[in-house]
Design a protein around this nucleic acid. Structure first.
Lengths: 342, 342
DNA sequence: CACACATGTGAAATCGAGGCCACATTGTAC
DNA sequence: GTACAATGTGGCCTCGATTTCACATGTGTG
């Protein structure tokens, strides 16, 4: 590949002049500018961003860390991030958190990136790691536990969302509501679980252990949801509703219920959280809590850009609102499907 | 952030020695090594990969370009790529092709990457652009039109797969089979369309224009599939089967058919291509052609590594086999669902 | 004792582009 | 004619890590 030196030689000038032409800085004569530009296109010269980055301390690259690219929830946030960031000349590295923690933390600190975006960081990364990284380079987080990090973040009140969700199920007449969600090391940190428990205990309901189903893994959410409910049904546990922690789990649950010979929503109602695209495409369409994924991505990127450009102005903690979308996987108190809200 | 110079100063040695310790090259005394390592951990020193890359001409970063991160087909390939690549110390930049062509082509040539992987390149990028990039840096492609590029690639015979698929529908008794797929500038380059046409004409069937439904966009496949079939049904077009070009389109189609008051598969059979995870989770579970996504990712990465490391040995063009997975969205010739193949 | 050779370390050049400073040259004002 | 800006261009150091070369020891062998 051609270097700026090659261009300079061909145009009969010094590399400094080439740099001036490229960056439109300083004074350059019209004829020289012309010659340099011709040399650039003749050699197909593209400035090496590595060398630029080293010198300018600005790389135009942003790291985005998420639990799994396979859960469509995250790609939809990424779309919002990219739309905002690409317009500013940034490109993105997406990290699936399949690697060990130490590895990607290291990669992030290697100086490749102008900023980092964490989507739904795990517990293990909670305060220490992310705060550590945030000290070194601009960082934003999407997390409802964001306050703990002390850095700019976007969050939704998942506890409240889940509580509302379960309360709605209770109002629809359900008593035996199964919770399906991810396992946390410390369940007091699990907002969806807490929201569920709050709703249940507020209404004076018992929550037998077998109505709480935790799955351990993030990479195979759909099939884990399926298996979990399959096992629960096989074990003869009785429930009339499933409150799943996200749509992928909910979709897996629906299929397990159907395969067990029951009907959704007539025998069992199912709700999710996220409102991924697929939620309204399946049959029965999923009743869920909509999280504005695209907006979250956009706001995250705005917050990050503000940090990078050192604009102190503006809020650095943003809560985004959720909304229950009732579709076909639940019955209302009159025993009817809620119709076709898209 | 600490530099190797800082480490050297603290350990009372030269930067050269620090480098030797880090890379295990040359001779280093045990005591000096010890001192350097202590300085490294005291300063939380992480080598700057930009500077390393500049010097070593090796960056440990690979670009991966795909039509849309929102079609789960691609994330599943990426999982295979990453599993193979991360083990070799590579990290990945994922590019959604929402950007303009010129932009990401430029980014790729900026010297950040050791290699590029193109997943399902568009027609516009066909020969010229990709061949151009391949001249400059190691490149592999997943594409059934891969031969045109003259570079290592992985492909599935999508034409044959679609032909088999449609032939199966014909054998199941269907005559009016609707084709649902992406629009190509030149439809002779559209393998799934060609496969469909081959099957239909081989059996002597007429293909009225309204049975061919093209959608223009890659980013909103699911809803485009829905709308396309919705419109077709509203227009009163008669068909008993839909052969969709991928699972997302098929899932959109199914929902449109159901919303129109018809049943799948009793009134209309639907088939997809890809076998994404969701295909077996929905109801009715989707009959589709399985493409081994994880394998494709692994092989792509192997081919790319071979290029980067200049191992000439081994095949550089790999065809992977597909397989029809019959599930519930089709009826066989006896009018029965094919059961529950997972 | 001389010489080969392994061991251990530092100085300085290098990768490619940016940017400060120095130095010309020309133009303009008094 | 002198002072001083504006214009135009090159030299050289810098970013941070690697690597070649040179140099200093120590160790073994004929």
């Amino acid at each position: 590949m051609a270097t700026s030196r090659d261009v300079a030689k061909r145009a009969g000038v010094s590399p400094a002049t080439v740099s001036r032409v490229l960056n439109n800085s300083g004074y350059v004569g019209a004829d020289v500018r012309e010659r340099v530009n011709r040399a650039i296109s003749e050699l197909n010269y593209v400035p090496n961003r590595l060398a630029q980055g080293l010198r300018k301390q600005h790389y135009g690259q942003i790291a985005c860390v998420m639990p799994s690219i396979r859960n469509p929830f995250y790609p939809e946030i990424v779309m919002g991030i990219e739309e905002t960031g690409l317009a500013q000349g940034y490109t993105f590295s997406l990290f699936n958190r399949i690697t060990k923690r130490e590895e990607y933390l290291q990669v992030i600190l290697e100086g490749f990136y102008d900023g980092v975006i964490f989507l739904s960081p795990f517990e293990v990364e909670k305060v220490y790691d992310i705060a550590e990284i945030a000290k070194q380079i601009p960082t934003v987080v999407y997390s409802d536990r964001g306050h703990a990090f002390g850095i700019p973040h976007v969050f939704v009140d998942l506890r409240a969302a889940m509580e509302k969700n379960v309360t709605q199920l209770i109002e629809d007449g359900h008593r035996e509501i199964l919770f399906l969600g991810y396992e946390f090391v410390d369940e007091s940190e699990n907002p969806r679980y807490q929201g569920y428990m709050d709703a249940m205990t507020t209404h004076g309901f018992d929550v037998p252990k077998q109505l709480i189903q935790f799955i351990p893994d993030f990479t195979d959410t759909l099939s884990m949801g399926y298996e979990s409910i399959q096992n629960t049904l096989h074990a003869g546990v009785s429930f009339t509703a499933v409150a799943a922690s996200n749509d992928l789990l909910a979709i897996g649950a629906i299929r397990a219920i159907i395969d067990h010979g029951l009907h959704v929503p007539e025998d069992v109602s199912v709700t999710g959280v996220d409102d991924i695209e697929m939620a309204r495409a399946i049959t029965p369409a999923l009743t869920t809590t909509r999280i504005p994924k695209h907006d979250i991505g956009r706001i995250l990127m705005d917050l990050l850009l503000a940090q990078i450009n050192q604009d102190a102005q503006g809020e650095s903690v943003v809560e985004v609102a959720t909304e229950i979308i009732r579709r076909e996987s639940t019955l209302n108190r009159h025993g009817q499907q809620d119709g076709k809200q898209r």
